[in-house]
């Protein structure tokens, strides 16, 4: 059974067509990323999948249940971490989780062990009795993730899990997400507008202006826009050039375009016959992928034209 199944989904807010008919499937156990600039329609899609908003057209099933007709079944089987905080900061971390456990009707005897498990996972066990308002931004986000996992959902939705956090905290949140993938048999569906974070996903869907423009593994997406570039410096560039195919001499050194840089380089050392003094491999980035599919970089789309859209999105969320 697919974890998430979306067919022809569309949603408008008045004049604004936020989601313009998207189709995709997410397999169980997969970490699936929605990548796109602000205003692309990522949060809207997540809200529909989580039964928080009604679609205008199309259908979606999550954990086998229809989001339009089996709302409570969907809700029982998903965990949610929203873009905006949803903790009661006047309660302790523990009480926030207990509240959640009761609302989700967890069997009583499972609450305490599960709470310890998820709090340890996000490194907040020692702080469980502190009020949430004493927590840093990163700790709050981790607590939200722990709470989303509390009732052992099949699918965990994370809407911009690292937005507004400093790079170090972002990295640590990702460590927790990776750990989570190993410990729980769970499907993770997340959105981000950070390219580097999308790399962490098994598959990425690139969304732009309400439509999916690409969907594949990060490697495959990057392969569609070009090959790896291996740059080497050698003791004798001319001799090296004579041996290599498809190589050009640049001020940075000799640049060779190959399919798979990582396996190419060891072979190169064996076959070149000229001493190599330095090697670097550069790959096409997801930025290049986004550029090739949308005609602009993600940073461009964040700026000028999307600004008013972004503000509207912020106002619309409250």
């Amino acid at each position: 059974m697919t974890a998430v199944e979306v067919r022809g989904l569309r949603k408008s807010y008045g004049e604004v067509e936020a989601v313009k008919g998207v189709d995709f499937d997410v397999a169980p156990g997969e970490t699936f990323g929605f990548l796109g600039p602000n205003g692309a329609g990522k949060s809207t899609t997540i809200k529909i999948l989580c039964t928080l908003a009604k679609a205008d057209g199309g259908s979606a099933r999550v954990a086998g249940f229809d989001v339009a007709t089996q709302r409570n079944d969907v809700r029982r089987h998903i965990g949610l971490v929203f873009q905006d905080p949803t903790l009661d900061t006047y309660l302790s971390a523990e009480m926030n989780l207990r509240f959640h456990a009761e609302l989700y009707g967890m069997p009583r005897e499972t609450v305490a062990p599960r709470m310890e498990q998820v709090l340890r996972m996000v490194g907040l066990w020692e702080r469980r009795t502190s009020k949430v308002l004493t927590f840093s931004g990163g700790m709050k986000r981790r607590l939200e993730i722990a709470r989303g996992l509390m009732h052992s959902p099949r699918v965990l939705f994370l809407d911009e899990p690292t937005v507004g956090l400093d790079p170090q905290t972002r990295a640590s949140i990702w460590d927790y997400i990776h750990e989570l993938r190993q410990q729980e048999q769970i499907t993770i569906f997340l959105t981000t507008h950070y390219m580097d974070e999308a790399e962490n996903c098994d598959r990425i869907a690139i969304m732009d202006e309400g439509k999916l423009v690409a969907l594949d593994t990060p490697a495959a997406l990057k392969a569609t826009v070009g090959t790896d570039r291996v740059t080497i410096r050698t003791a004798d560039d001319q001799a090296a050039l004579a041996v290599l195919e498809d190589a050009v001499l640049t001020p940075d050194g000799i640049v060779i375009s190959v399919e798979d840089g990582e396996s190419y380089v060891p072979r190169l050392f064996g076959t070149l016959g000229v001493p190599i003094t330095s090697v670097s491999i550069s790959r096409p980035s997801l930025d290049d992928v986004f550029l090739s599919y949308t005609g602009r970089t993600i940073r461009d789309s964040e700026q000028a034209p999307a600004r008013p859209v972004m503000l509207a999105a912020m106002a619309g969320r409250r």
């Binding site: 309660l91 009707g105 069997p107 499972t110 996972m121 729980e184």
Partner: peptide, 27 residues
């Protein structure tokens, strides 16, 4: 770390709603 606690939310709707009422009051 222990194995995944097999926690699935049960179906008894009325009892569930009652627990929800109680925890909201308690808060």
């Amino acid at each position: 770390m222990t194995a995944v606690a097999a926690v699935r939310v049960p179906q008894r709707a009325f009892a569930l709603d009652l627990r929800a009422v109680k925890i909201v009051v308690q808060r």
